[in-house]
């Protein structure tokens, strides 16, 4: 079943890609092939392979139970929030919070995850920023 969904999705993607390729504006100064052809070839092969996946699906993978999927989604949300607030709160605080969260979800006790998060964040800050001089997001507190 999963592969059928993948195939159907791939086919839809191929059609969308082909449509998007047709929307490309041709310049008056074009070479023989033009900017549309290669994307159209890609869309064709993508469509064909999607149909093949749809017709001959592999056995289903073992999908994790709902709780695990929610777990992954939550981690994705945390990562998005991390990226969003990185500049507002600065690298060290954002990273400490995000890595504490991930460490907690990967099995650290809630009490232990805080020092782990801080250690990871400060460790990266010291090594990459202070020693190697990499520019990291600077928050209102200067770090």
């Amino acid at each position: 079943m999963s592969d059928r969904i993948l195939g159907a999705f791939g086919l839809a993607l191929a059609i969308f890609y082909a449509w998007a390729a047709l929307q490309i504006q041709e310049s008056f100064l074009s070479d023989e092939v033009g900017p549309k052809t290669f994307p159209l070839i890609i869309a064709t092969i993508l469509g064909l392979s999607s149909i093949a996946i749809f017709i001959k699906p592999d056995p289903d993978p073992t999908w994790p139970p709902m709780a695990r999927i929610v777990e992954i989604l939550a981690a994705v949300v945390v990562m998005f929030l991390y990226a969003m607030f990185l500049r507002q709160v600065g690298f060290v605080i954002a990273t400490a919070v995000a890595s504490a969260y991930l460490s907690w979800r990967l099995g650290s006790s809630p009490l232990m995850s805080l020092p782990i998060g801080v250690a990871i964040s400060v460790g990266i800050y010291v090594v990459f920023h202070l020693i190697f001089g990499l520019s990291l997001a600077r928050g209102p507190l200067g770090f």
Binding site: M79, Y82, A83, M84, L86, R87, F91, T95, A98, S99, A100, L102, S103, L106, G107, S108, I116, G117, I120, S121, G123, I124, F128, L134, S135, L136, A137
Partner: peptide, 26 residues
């Protein structure tokens, strides 16, 4: 892994942010 994996994730973010400084890339 509960210590290693958060570290890997954060180093990935640092690396990409370090190249472009762009949140869009993140």
């Amino acid at each position: 892994p509960r210590i290693l994996m958060p570290f890997v994730a954060m180093v990935s973010f640092v690396g990409i942010y370090g190249i472009s400084g762009s949140v869009f890339d993140l």
